[in-house]
């Protein structure tokens, strides 16, 4: 995941900052508790493709 791309990407719903979780290949929006998948290196920034995270999901940890 290119650092420059991470800089321009935002959550498509709240436009907030995303956190890159390399080990899970996802971009996480903490506010909406959504994990957007990165498939074959392509960020999939579609709400219907994102995984809803539980409040205690480790992907939300700081």
């Amino acid at each position: 995941m290119d650092a420059r791309l991470l800089e321009i990407l935002a959550c498509p719903i709240c436009k907030g900052t995303l956190v890159y979780r390399r080990e899970a290949a996802v971009l996480v929006c903490r506010l909406d508790r959504l994990a957007y998948p990165i498939r074959d290196g392509v960020p999939v920034m579609l709400e219907e493709e994102a995984r809803q995270l539980g409040a205690d999901d480790p992907l939300l940890e700081r």
């Binding site: 791309l5 990407l9 935002a10 498509p12 436009k15 392509v42 999939v44 920034m45 579609l46 493709e49």
Partner: peptide
């Protein structure tokens, strides 16, 4: 998006990134 990647490679074009998203909910900062 895969067709874009192939087409860019065939043309020797650099600097094209692909992302999946909807025009009505853009995943970018202001």
């Amino acid at each position: 998006l895969a067709a874009v990647v192939r087409g860019a490679q065939e043309r020797g074009l650099r600097g094209i990134e692909v992302q999946a998203g909807s025009a009505h909910s853009l995943p970018y900062r202001d």
